[in-house]
Simulated scan of single mutants.
Amino acid sequence: MTDTFGEYLKQIREARGLSINQLASLAGISGSQISRIENGLRGVPKPVTLRKIAEATGVSYDQLMGYAGYLPEQDNNLTESPVPGWATNKDKRDFRKMLEDDGELMFDGIPLNKEDKQRIKDVLTGLFWEAKQMNKRKKNSPPSDNTDHSVTNN
């Protein structure tokens, strides 16, 4: 197992026999971006970029999301998140499942096609896990001292 996402991406790319430029072309992203990721000069890519890399390499999107740290290690299934006891049936509707359904879904009166739904799902997935990570950091950080220590001269 590799230590960083960049090393993991390089391992995948090399296993597929792809150069950086070939992967970049297949994924529709720049070669310099892939190089920076692999060399640790850029952090973990956003979910939208991971989707492109997954499609270009044939690696599952969920696998990349998990390795990138967006999904918890013990449970990569987003649909099994705990639901508060006060939640009504309407509250329990899973937006991700709604985006995955084949039924018509509209935004601002405009029907969404499959690609629109996938892009929205990718963006929301990234935002969701980013928010979860931020909330986890807030719970673990010591409370801040909001006392005003400024001195005023009258």
Rank of each mutant, 00 (worst) to 15 (best):
E100F: 04
V83L: 10
M134V: 08
N113D: 15
L99E: 06
I110H: 06
E130C: 01
Q118N: 12
D122R: 00
K132E: 09
K90D: 15
K117S: 05
N76L: 12
G109C: 11
T125R: 03
V123R: 10
T147Q: 12
N77W: 07
P84T: 04
D94V: 09
D101K: 04
P142F: 03
E80S: 15
V83E: 06
N146Y: 04
F107E: 03
E104M: 12
Y67V: 15
N77Q: 15
D122L: 03
F107L: 15
G103S: 11
S144Q: 14
V123T: 08
L99G: 08
Y70R: 09
S81T: 11
D145G: 02
K121C: 00
L112K: 01
K90A: 15
P111K: 11
P72Q: 04
M106S: 15
K136G: 02
T147Y: 07
T79S: 06
E104A: 07
R93I: 13
S144K: 11
K97E: 14
T79L: 06
D101T: 03
L127K: 09
D91V: 02
V123D: 07
R93C: 06
T152E: 14
L127N: 10
D101G: 00
K92S: 08
D102V: 03
N140F: 02
F128I: 09
D101M: 00
Q74N: 14
E73T: 08
D122K: 02
N113E: 06
P143E: 11
K92M: 11
S141F: 02
L78T: 10
R119C: 01
V151H: 11
R96S: 07
S81D: 10
N76D: 09
G103Q: 09
P72M: 00
M106W: 00
G69C: 07
K139T: 10
D102P: 00
Y70I: 04
E73S: 13
H149F: 10
W129S: 10
N77P: 06
V151I: 13
D116L: 14
I120P: 06
V123Q: 00
L124V: 10
W129V: 01
K90T: 14
D116A: 15
H149K: 12
E130S: 10
N89S: 08
D75H: 09
P143S: 10
D94L: 08
E104I: 05
L112W: 04
G109N: 07
D75V: 00
M98H: 03
Q118I: 09
D94G: 01
D116R: 03
P142D: 05
D148R: 07
Q118L: 11
M134T: 05
Y70T: 03
G66V: 07
K132W: 01
I120V: 15
E73H: 05
D116N: 14
E100C: 09
G69E: 08
K114Y: 06
D101N: 11
K138E: 03
A131E: 13
P82V: 05
M134G: 02
L78K: 03
N113F: 07
A131R: 14
M106F: 03
K121G: 02
T152Y: 14
F107I: 12
M98Y: 05
